[in-house]
Design a protein around this nucleic acid. Structure first.
Length: 273
DNA sequence: AGGACGCCCTGTTCGC
DNA sequence: TGCGAACAGGGCGTCC
């Protein structure tokens, strides 16, 4: 599921393959994926212009159209990703795997050089549409600062403003920090030995510092791995997201519990309540 | 105001 | 074996 690191990889991918080439056609194969725009409006805004810049805020990817154009935004839901094809043949997809099945294309951008950028989203939780500007989009969606761009002081301030809340749902609140999803929230809590339901006001300063460091480290390490989770350290909890898994640290059985409406994995021994 | 919860959607896995 | 139920899960709307 695309969280911040995956979307950052998608952004690199767009920079490498999809900038500064005129879009000759936009094909909307599933209009329902569009948000706050129509197929005609999207086509007329993009066709005849190149994408000139790719920016990311949290899990959202935004492509600037032309010099003064609007932006095309993409949110990848649970199963979204990008691929680049030429003459119907996949050259590469955003996960670097040319053999990945290329189905569930919802929107396709055709370029003048005969290549295509494909937006895939099997489960239709993702969205694609138009925004006037980055600022307009961020405020419309009430996105907090990007989790990889926030400084330590701001991190503490924003968490403590939610002092009564449980740590995990607050970390995942995109208005607090944009980009942390279920998997990486569990990971940073595990690395710092914090129970996911712990109230923020109950967390000591040393542990808060750890959470900041691990937020940056876990996200950055995953970006550096090109979002290939198998390349992450063996000691990471995210390798144990299945039933009857054992804690990489102490062998304890990993607990699975619903926290803030999301399936949460944690070690009951090293993340005591 | 803000927290809890249900729902959107579809491919896969599970259970009878 | 076969088919329906349950599950996965980010974000948004609704309710209290």
């Amino acid at each position: 599921m695309p969280e911040l690191p995956e979307v950052e990889v998608f952004r690199h991918f767009v920079e490498e393959y999809a900038l500064n080439k005129n879009v000759t056609a936009v094909e909307i194969l599933k209009p329902k994926i569009l948000q706050k725009t129509t197929p005609d409006a999207l086509k007329s805004a993009v066709e005849g212009h190149p994408f000139i810049r790719a920016e990311r805020r949290g899990k959202h990817l935004l492509l600037e159209v032309g010099k003064k154009g609007p932006w095309v935004f993409m949110h990848f839901g649970l199963t979204g990703y990008l691929s680049w094809t030429k003459n119907g043949q996949t050259l590469v997809n955003a996960y670097g795997d040319p053999d990945r099945p290329e189905d569930h294309v919802r929107v396709r951008f055709d370029f003048a050089d005969g290549s295509e950028l494909n937006f895939h989203e099997m489960r239709m939780f993702g969205k694609l549409g138009l925004a006037d500007s980055l600022e307009e989009y961020v405020s419309r969606n009430k996105l907090g600062p990007d989790a990889l761009a926030v400084d330590e002081k701001t991190f503490h301030e924003r968490l403590l403003a939610k002092a009564k809340g449980q740590i995990k749902p607050v970390l995942m609140d995109q208005a607090v920090f944009a980009g942390i999803g279920n998997v990486y929230a569990d990971e940073m809590l595990y690395q710092c030995r914090v129970h996911p339901e712990k109230r923020i006001s109950e967390i000591d300063p040393k542990t808060l510092k750890c959470l900041y460091q691990q937020m940056v480290e876990v996200l950055q390490k995953t970006v550096d791995c090109n979002a290939d989770r198998t390349c992450l350290p063996k000691g990471y909890l995210l390798h144990t997201r299945h039933k009857n898994a054992q804690c990489p640290r102490d062998g304890e059985k990993i607990h699975i519990k619903e926290v803030g409406g999301r399936t949460t994995y944690f070690c009951p021994k090293c993340q005591e309540e």
